[in-house]
């Protein structure tokens, strides 16, 4: 596969390490009252739909960017690639 890196252009998938669902960005607050329940969902529950999937890839043999790759897991078509940092900021993560 070729992953179009937002900063570096198309890069071979072999340069990357795969992590999994981009939902891992949405880490719950560990100090919240219902933290145990929410961390259970966060740690173990994943949707596994056919079609488009948002997933985390790490450019380990490259610039060390974590990327959110939107990929059709049936066809392997890559629809969109974003810096995970930008996605996290847009989702309200900060400090």
């Amino acid at each position: 596969m070729l992953i179009p890196h937002p900063l570096l252009g198309p890069r071979d998938a072999q340069e990357f390490t795969y992590l999994g669902d981009a939902a891992l960005i949405d880490r719950p607050d560990g100090l919240a009252a219902d933290a145990a329940e929410r961390f259970f969902d966060y740690g173990y529950l994943r949707d596994n739909p056919p079609g488009e999937h948002r997933e985390l890839w790490f450019h380990e043999q490259g610039d060390r960017s974590w990327l959110v790759v939107t990929r059709n897991i049936t066809t392997h078509e890559i629809v969109r690639v974003e810096l995970a940092r930008d996605v996290a900021l847009a989702r309200g993560r900060g400090r």
């Binding site: 992590l19 891992l24 960005i25 880490r27 985390l56 790490f58 960017s65 974590w66 810096l83 995970a84 940092r85 996605v87 996290a88 900021l89 993560r93 900060g94 400090r95």
Partner: peptide, 9 residues
């Protein structure tokens, strides 16, 4: 991962 995805700020 923690730096870029969890606490980018």
């Amino acid at each position: 991962f923690c730096r870029q995805c969890l606490w980018p700020g």
